[in-house]
């Protein structure tokens, strides 16, 4: 059968909308499904057409853990040798004490709540998404571990790729313009840290919220750049 594509690149599609037929490759397996040689969208999103490859970038969604993802989690429960972490996914994640402390734990002598207590925020990496879907985290490596200061911004995880941008261009723009350290986690949480002043922190947060809202409209990077400059002028941040 001859391959044909019925949608334009970046066209807004809805579940059940036909995308194409024939021999095509699916680039996003969870948002496109095929039946009888026809391809349909499974979500509300933007069609992503590249030659014979077809996919749908979802506009609405939730985080589903993948091995190697950087995530920001909140401790929800303290056990005897592990913590339970909320990573905004359908399943909670587990962080083992031996991983966090980098040494064996003596449960008779020390309590885990001395290190991390309920409500504490950690930056971690997804180590394993097990067969039984027990998700484990690791904090080994530079930049991981407990977060002691900064602002945490939560957005829809489907919009995280827009905050990073093509080859990290959007994130680079945000960091250069604000001089803040920004950690973008795949699960929709963003940590804004070490800002030179309160104003630049606020501008970054406003810019992130704007990205979330306007993620599907083309020309995002330029608009965000203009927005940050305007906001900086309004706050008189160019004088000093």
């Amino acid at each position: 059968m001859e391959a044909s594509i019925h949608v334009q690149n970046r066209e807004l599609v809805t579940p059940g909308q036909i995308l194409g037929s024939g021999k095509l490759t699916i680039s996003t397996p969870t948002t496109v499904y095929s039946v009888g040689g026809k391809y349909y969208s499974a979500v509300v999103g933007l069609a992503d057409v590249e030659g014979e490859k077809i996919g749908v970038i979802p506009l609405e969604g939730f985080y589903y853990p993948k091995v190697g993802d950087l995530v920001i989690g909140v401790v929800t429960s303290v056990g005897t040798n592990s913590w339970e972490i909320d990573i905004k996914a359908p399943y909670h994640a587990v962080l083992y004490a031996s991983d966090f402390l980098n040494r064996p734990l003596n449960p008779a002598r020390e309590s885990l709540s001395d290190y991390l207590d309920i409500g504490d925020v950690i930056v971690a990496k997804v180590e394993n998404v097990g067969r039984g879907r027990v998700t484990t985290l690791t904090v080994k490596g530079k930049g991981f571990g407990k977060v002691s200061k900064g602002s945490l911004v939560e957005i829809d995880s489907a919009k995280i790729p827009r905050v990073i941008g093509k080859k990290g261009s959007m994130l680079q723009l945000l960091m250069n313009e604000s001089k803040c350290e920004i950690t973008v986690a795949q699960n929709g949480r963003i940590l804004v840290n070490n800002c030179p002043n309160k104003d630049s922190e606020e501008v970054v947060i406003m810019a992130i919220k704007k990205i979330e809202k306007e993620a599907h409209i083309p020309g995002l990077t330029d608009r965000i750049k203009d927005f940050i400059i305007k906001e900086k002028v309004r706050r008189g941040m160019f004088s000093g």
Partner: peptide, 11 residues
């Protein structure tokens, strides 16, 4: 369901 971003074959 569609608004929640849950993949579905059709509305």
């Amino acid at each position: 369901l569609a608004d929640a971003g849950i993949p579905m074959k059709d509305l």
